[in-house]
């Protein structure tokens, strides 16, 4: 799929969507719109994964980032009182400084990565049973990080429950 010309066109369309919506996330003043553009941004990133033949990653991206994380954010916004028509500026007087810092960071990443070869498209075709390979790797080679992440998530969940629980009088 990766060598097809239409994939290149798709990549540019998706890349523009990602960048524009990402910019809108950090610049719009209506926080609900920001959350929606974050979803658009993450969905477009999933689209880029599809152009790279990583369908499982794309689906996981949509399921977790759009379906769970962003929906949770929207819930938080909806449950916050008197937020509906607020115009909240997202920047303070350090905006220029932050912009410069971020630009320098991105340029640094590009500088470092363009020297290496690891970010290019894989020359060898991917295995067809992508999911099975990922599953096997998670259960054998990467079983320790996998379990550590699980424990971390459970700890975070229990922490959230403890924090949110009403104190018994």
């Amino acid at each position: 799929m990766a060598e097809h010309a239409s994939v290149g066109i798709m990549f540019w369309i998706l890349a523009i969507v990602v960048v524009v919506s990402g910019f809108l996330v950090v610049s719009l003043r209506n926080i609900f719109h920001c959350a929606l553009f974050l979803m658009l941004c993450l969905t477009a990133v999933a689209g880029i994964f599809i152009t790279l033949d990583a369908e499982f990653l794309a689906v996981a991206q949509v399921l977790i980032y759009v379906g769970a994380v962003s929906v949770l954010m929207i819930f938080a916004i909806m449950l916050t009182r008197d937020l509906a028509d607020k115009q909240i500026p997202q920047t303070n007087k350090h905006a220029m400084l932050a912009f410069l810092g971020c630009t320098a960071f991105v340029l640094g990443i590009i500088l470092v990565l363009s020297g290496t070869d690891m970010w290019r498209w894989a020359k060898t075709p991917l295995p067809v049973e992508n999911v099975m390979t990922i599953g096997k790797l998670l259960m054998t080679k990467y079983v320790l990080p996998f379990e550590v992440i699980s424990i971390l998530l459970v700890a975070a969940m229990i922490g959230a429950i403890v924090l949110a629980r009403k104190e018994k009088a």
Binding site: M39, F56, V59, L63, G67, S70, V71, I74, M78, N130
Partner: peptide, 22 residues
């Protein structure tokens, strides 16, 4: 025929949830 078909269906139902919230 995606090799992740059923997961794909699970993923696209997400957009229905978002549209109802919207």
């Amino acid at each position: 025929d995606f090799n992740i078909g059923i997961l794909y269906i699970m993923a696209v139902t997400t957009f229905t949830i978002i549209s109802l919230l919207m």
